[in-house]
Design a protein around this nucleic acid. Sequence first.
DNA 1: GATGAATGAGCATTCATTCAT
DNA 2: AATGAATGAATGCTCATTCAT
Lengths: 193, 193, 193, 193
Amino acid sequence: MTNPADPAPPRPANQGRRVAARNRAALIAAAREVFAEQGLNAPLSAVARRAGVGQGSLYRHFADRTALASAVLGENVRQIERAAAEPGATLTSVLGVVTWHVTRSTAFVDLLRLRGDDDKEGRELSERVRAVLAGCPAGGHELAVDDLMLAVAMVSGAVAGPLDRRERQALAAWRLLGIDVGPLRPVETDADV
Amino acid sequence: MTNPADPAPPRPANQGRRVAARNRAALIAAAREVFAEQGLNAPLSAVARRAGVGQGSLYRHFADRTALASAVLGENVRQIERAAAEPGATLTSVLGVVTWHVTRSTAFVDLLRLRGDDDKEGRELSERVRAVLAGCPAGGHELAVDDLMLAVAMVSGAVAGPLDRRERQALAAWRLLGIDVGPLRPVETDADV
Amino acid sequence: MTNPADPAPPRPANQGRRVAARNRAALIAAAREVFAEQGLNAPLSAVARRAGVGQGSLYRHFADRTALASAVLGENVRQIERAAAEPGATLTSVLGVVTWHVTRSTAFVDLLRLRGDDDKEGRELSERVRAVLAGCPAGGHELAVDDLMLAVAMVSGAVAGPLDRRERQALAAWRLLGIDVGPLRPVETDADV
Amino acid sequence: MTNPADPAPPRPANQGRRVAARNRAALIAAAREVFAEQGLNAPLSAVARRAGVGQGSLYRHFADRTALASAVLGENVRQIERAAAEPGATLTSVLGVVTWHVTRSTAFVDLLRLRGDDDKEGRELSERVRAVLAGCPAGGHELAVDDLMLAVAMVSGAVAGPLDRRERQALAAWRLLGIDVGPLRPVETDADV
DNA sequence: GATGAATGAGCATTCATTCAT
DNA sequence: AATGAATGAATGCTCATTCAT
């Protein structure tokens, strides 16, 4: 018979609040990968596992799926904002960065396809992208920002499958729209978490 | 509390084989709605429920999700083929029908984004759409069929949200591509099963 | 819209009561195969399908799984009884026939492992086998019939896997028991249905 | 009728990680009973229910049916190995322990009848039993280990029905084989997990 | 009598979410 | 704060059984 009062299994030490920030970053990094691969509906358990973190910690840092997704996509948007802030940035160069994210992340594509209903977080992020595009020196293009956003969504719709295919499709899509994009690339970050 | 001596578990009447065809049609109709709203991964149980039919009946008529999806999307593709067969059909008019389906059905959009791997049914349907487009008298456009299919995928990527918004976005997307589409419309069918 | 009063699909002609007997035989034949391959718990739908008969017909002829199983195993037992009735039959020759069934039919093995509870049909069949063995001229063996039945069950427990393996195991088992068996064989029937 | 405004779906208290080990043990105990009664194909939901544990917990502890079965049968095999390691152990005494398990557990009998195909776990366990028998001081018997394993399978085939009947049949089967077995008994364990 | 469709209970499996420690 | 186990609802799928025609 099992003794019902047998001692609790050894509890892993609480490593203090220093770890908190580290865990948050690990969760975002893991979510970026998982969402990029499987889209915004990927199992959250997979994120926690890849982050090397308990399920509970995930929920402590991010109240729900949306919060986590916002954190991940927020980084993407921040990169786009940084790209636009670089000296010599043009609409062309910024679209290159946008397209880089579109080809890399299924989640970023999903962002542009969200239902308008329960969203809000998503709309804010979209708004920020729109603001960036609106502020770009339009290198010869006379496109309204609405059309630019539409064009980004359209390119998103064109990509599917493995990475190389996604890149080819994205470039072909931009060509079909008659819009130049710079090289597909991320943005260097100071502290690349 | 349930009476443990409940005599007869009241089985809803088996309505005989008369309803078979009706059920099949109801399943397709329900699947069209559910897939249109929630996409190709919608729960099949929701389809059965909306059709007012047991789970088993669904599986009797359609061996798996693919079979059901094919039945639904097959109708869509058939409509497109019919549109191209109408007297006086042009690329423009056919694209209007294609776009009608894109705005109506999330599932139709999904069709154009399927991974090539395990699919086959889906690829066949895509192929049929491509064949229709390839055979259209290209009213002034000099687009290769590859680019046409890409354009359709791009338009698909642009639509989201409520119906009226979807329509506006689709039309704007085509305009951005510089491609004319006819009026968004389905095709009249003799027996609209 | 579908006309709710559309005509019933053409009904397959009722082919008269001559077919009844034929169907019954087909069901037994199919069940023999299916039960032999998959054991007594095989899906009854598989039996109906292999018999080329509707599910309903199966249930008309056989009220439940037990009835069908009894029909199948009854034939096996009848063969054993016939073997014992052949001129020159000995315990050895009869055990050869018994063993033939053991190696051929998973269901026959299952028969010997049935729970005693709800059984009855099964016990009757077992009884008949026992009666046959009891009546055999025991060619030199001094085994009580209880022990013979036990031995048969033991040999049943030894067989598993593909046919050739089953045969080797059965013969090894009998050898281990020090009991001779004749050649493994079925019995010729006059009208081999 | 259920009040549609039911506020809180009363979730049974999550009793924390204290119960983890207890639950695991409860699952194994429940599985031992259920598998013993119904064989290796018993519904896992029955195991979870009898353990007083949610379905999810079962799957957390045991990835699949095989894992659970291995845990249960592994204990059986370990007991047999311990029996062979006892001072004064003989083939006779070990066979008594083996037979004890055969009479107690339908699952243990199933183990000996597994198809070789997709198994592996099962074969490993069988191998361990064989190894134990091979290593036993054969008290006067000159049986090859192959024949011993066959004999065990044969005895397994002989047992069916209620416990007392199973015991009588097993002993009679061994007698028929001319092989001595010690008293049917389990092995005392220090910590009976 | 035969037919084949309808039905729902049952089982396996996954996953979002909560909570004691 | 972190942990990781518990939980059950949801979903896919199979099958025994009933029944109108």
